[in-house]
């Protein structure tokens, strides 16, 4: 696949100071009277890996789902490469519609959501063929490269219900990558997996980090987050309670709420 060449951490850090790909300002989201996101500013720079951690119900999933307009924010602005995102499918003038946004910002879900009536290969090719309208040959070639990358070449003609959870999630990642996104949003992608299958998915994500993929990752795998993320955001009760380098947030922070949250993982 033609992601940017493998970047060293230093090179990535340098580019991280450059272009902001995705950013949110004053983001709020309510469901009826319940406000889940209470004013969040967040930006994602090219090549950066941002891990979002926090207790259940803190709003981290809602936050990441707002970034590709899977949830419509109640207030605030999302920008893709500086252009404001609008709540309509088609782009017009300087505003980006969510159709265009999602062509560049891929997402992988906790429950995989593979299309059960399509084979593994068809799942991966669906977006590029139907949405991007690329020729079948090049799409299938790319899909096979991606299957090689996630280690599932032999499963190309299999239907999803014959796959294990870990395999399903690796196909889902390949499906998102087939769109050649600028950014990948991973929403608790290992939370629905049996413990022994978590590793194979984390390995694939680690390879993406090596490739320099820009990612926002909501996860409960704190050790993994600390290891791969350039920045970690701790979300608590709908706000970013703390954000910074993995080291400063996870290892050095003295905030009581964060320490309490982390202590549950260290035990």
């Amino acid at each position: 696949m033609d992601l940017s060449a493998p970047a060293t951490r230093e090179a990535k850090a340098a580019s991280a100071s450059a272009d902001v790909i995705l950013d949110a300002t004053g983001l709020r989201k309510s469901y009826g009277k319940l406000e889940v996101i209470k004013g969040v500013d967040l930006s994602l720079k090219a090549g950066e890996v941002l891990a979002i951690i926090g207790p259940s119900g803190s709003g981290k999933s809602t936050l990441i789902r707002c970034l590709n307009m899977m949830e419509t924010p109640s207030a605030g602005v999302i920008r893709y490469k500086g252009r404001q995102v609008e709540t309509r499918f088609a782009s017009r003038k300087e505003r980006v519609g969510y159709g265009e946004l999602r062509r560049h910002v891929g997402m992988v879900f906790q429950h995989f959501n593979l299309f059960p009536h399509k084979t593994v290969l068809q799942n991966i090719c669906e977006g590029p063929l139907v949405v991007l309208r690329e020729p079948r040959e090049s799409v299938e070639a790319r899909a096979m490269d991606l299957l090689a990358k996630v280690g599932l070449v032999d499963k190309r003609d299999v239907y999803p219900n014959h796959l294990s959870g870990g395999q399903k999630q690796r196909v889902a990642i390949a499906r998102a990558l087939a769109m050649r996104p600028d950014v990948l949003l991973l929403d608790e992608v290992t939370s629905a997996l049996d413990p022994e299958l978590v590793g194979e998915v984390l390995e694939v994500i680690r390879a993406l980090v090596q490739d320099g993929m820009t990612m926002a990752i909501v996860t409960h795998e704190i050790a993994f987050a600390a290891d791969i993320a350039d920045r970690v955001a701790f979300i608590d009760e709908g706000v970013i309670a703390e954000i910074g380098s993995a080291d400063s947030v996870i290892h050095q922070s003295g905030t009581a709420r964060l320490r309490t949250f982390l202590s549950r993982f260290h035990s």
Binding site: E100, R102, F115, V130, M179
Partner: peptide
Amino acid sequence: IDRGQTEAAKAIAMSGRQTMWRIVMPQALK
């Protein structure tokens, strides 16, 4: 049909119509 199916289709930038006819309807018909 599970909401996740619609979401997965949207996540690869399908329009509402594409989502209905390519993803939801084939499963629903069955």
